[in-house]
């Protein structure tokens, strides 16, 4: 059995290290990988499932997980014949998305087009539902009409404050606040500019825009 210590390694390193260990086996065998986060466990499990390896994982202690892969004879033979590893690449890409985080973009105080009153009710519902998720986004960007939602009189202010308290970064376009005369009314998060908005969006793992 080959043991891989990937504790403290940011993804995709655990996947890459494990893949290298499997190569080193040069045939059937066991590879045990230690990691310190659940996302790495999920990525390793996904890779193993795609490659047809038997995989087991367990939490050893707080912040320590053990992933054990068994590479069978057939799978090992398949690996040797295989072209560049699409399963690993998929895992790496998935992880890159998770690593860079989800950015939610709110460009209006209404969701969708049609009836404005319904649109406002839907947007309130969206922000509420977002605040109830177990996985919160890394950043929420507000611009144009969406900038109204981060100000004192916003009906979703409490939802946004609770998400900010959980660590969500809340950024509102300063030009937009200025345009609507709301510069002094910002009640949650920070003021931002177009450069940061562009940067957050281009580096995001996922962008969610209701």
């Amino acid at each position: 059995m080959i043991k891989v210590n990937a504790l403290g390694d940011a993804c995709p390193i655990p996947v890459v290290k494990t893949k290298n260990a499997i190569k080193e086996l040069k045939g059937p065998g066991l590879v045990e990988t230690l990691v310190d986060n659940e996302i790495a466990v999920q990525n390793l499990t996904k890779m193993a499932d795609q490659k047809g390896y038997t995989v087991k994982s367990e939490k050893i202690s707080e912040g320590q997980y053990r992933v054990l892969m068994e590479i069978g004879k057939e799978e090992a033979a398949g690996d040797e014949a295989a072209e560049p590893d699409s399963a690993v690449m998929d895992s790496v890409m998935t992880d890159a998305a998770v690593r860079n985080g989800t950015v939610v973009v709110i460009s209006s105080d209404k969701m969708g087009r049609g009836d404005d009153e319904l649109g406002r009710a839907l947007m309130k519902g969206f922000i509420f539902a977002l605040s109830q998720q177990d996985q919160l986004p890394s950043t929420i960007l507000f611009y144009n009409g969406g900038a109204r939602m981060t100000t004192r009189d916003s009906v979703v202010l409490q939802d946004l404050l609770s998400m900010e308290e959980e660590g969500v970064e809340i950024l509102t376009c300063g030009t937009c606040l200025n345009h609507y005369g709301l510069t002094d009314s910002l009640a949650v998060g920070q003021v931002t500019n177009m450069y940061t908005i562009v940067e957050k969006m281009t580096l995001a793992g996922h962008i969610v825009k209701p």
């Binding site: 919160l136 950043t139 970064e169 957050k200």
Partner: peptide
Amino acid sequence: MTENKRDHIRKRIKKDYIIITFKTTTAAMA
């Protein structure tokens, strides 16, 4: 360059609420 953060994974504490449902969205908004 600003730092891009990870998503936040947490376990929410759930509470008991009263939910009132309506036949139409108009009635709900009213």
